[in-house]
Nucleic acid binder design. Structure first.
Lengths: 108, 108
DNA sequence: TAGTGGTACTCGGTGTTACGGGGTACCCGG
DNA sequence: CCGGGTACCCCGTAACACCGAGTACCACTA
């Protein structure tokens, strides 16, 4: 599937939030996770951008820890604000996707 | 629901395409349609921006016709390229939304 | 020991998209 | 004749994802 990028705007951040909410993890692994999930062309730079934004907005907690196979990793986990934001994201997603699906099905 | 705007990026154009594909219609009516559909804060300027983009990209056919209740309307309908684009949009939507839903459900 | 490839993060610039606000203009009823 | 609904357009702004380049750590190998 080519060029999903525009459609991901505004949802990719939520996806990252969900992944981080599931377990404490770091940028490089999140990118891999997204790629495996089917978002094949999501690229590292994008994920790091999102993570820095989440950090700036106070939605995550960060812990730097050494790795045995490369440079140190920045592990992210959600704080309360982050969990709240995540819940909000899913509410929005449900709303938007239901609207769009209803438009698709004859759309009344 | 507040501030869905970011989540609509990349999908709003598809929604307009779908509406135009359903019947020949014009900007002002499309805006109303979207508002009724639940996208309450989609605003006229946005729809016109999209319509002009569709026109520029050769996805629609345009016909100006007088109105009995105001200034003339620009009626839009899909051409072959537009129908193709619309089919593409729904394919992308299905793909993306299924991926995101699967992420939501435990995400394997 | 120099080189390669995988791991891991950061930054600056770019393009696309939707919004906000203003402007123009047509039409009808009071 | 003037306000409000109808109808369109344009310009500037903000958000978001991408791209490319840079830095740096580690293990393996020739």
């Amino acid at each position: 599937m080519e060029n999903l990028t525009e459609m991901l705007k505004g949802t990719l951040e939520g996806c990252v939030l969900e992944i981080v909410g599931g377990e404490e993890t770091y940028g490089y692994a999140i990118t891999r996770r997204l790629n495996d999930l089917g978002f094949a062309d999501v690229v590292e730079g994008t994920v790091y951008t999102i993570l820095l934004r989440l950090e700036k907005n106070g939605l995550v907690q960060v812990a730097k820890r050494p790795s045995e196979v490369g440079p140190p990793r920045k592990f992210y986990s959600l704080n309360d604000a982050g969990r709240e934001e995540l819940a909000m994201f899913w509410a929005k997603w449900q709303y938007v996707s239901s609207r769009i699906d209803s438009l698709k099905e004859g759309g009344r």
